[in-house]
């Protein structure tokens, strides 16, 4: 298992597991796998950031990664 910091923004926050920001996943888990494990409908995730950079859903998580998932925001 590896530890990541997980932040789910706006409407995605309801999918945040009890562990909150410090979250354990199996080594080799992709972001797509993480989204599936958390039962987040993938269409609701518009932006994925790891350590301050945009990544794709096939990114493999590493120990200590800071992960942020963001839904589409378009209001004005």
């Amino acid at each position: 298992m590896i530890k990541i910091d997980l932040k789910l923004f706006v409407t995605l926050s309801k999918f945040l597991p009890g562990e909150g920001e410090s979250f354990q996943v199996d080594e080799g888990t992709s972001i797509g796998g993480l989204i599936e494990n958390l039962s987040i409908p993938s269409a609701q995730v518009k932006l994925i950031f790891v350590n301050g950079k945009k990544v794709a859903s096939d990114y493999r998580l590493q120990q200590g990664d800071r992960v942020g998932l963001f839904p589409p925001v378009g209001g004005g």
């Binding site: 706006v10 409407t11 518009k46 932006l47 839904p71 589409p72 925001v73 378009g74 209001g75």
Partner: peptide, 30 residues
Amino acid sequence: SGQVTVIFPEDQGFELIYGKKAIEQSRGVE
């Protein structure tokens, strides 16, 4: 929550944020 970005004429811009333009994207989670 909110977001801000700056797009110059030659930049990819919104495609980087919202993906390819699609009609079902008209509104966000607001």
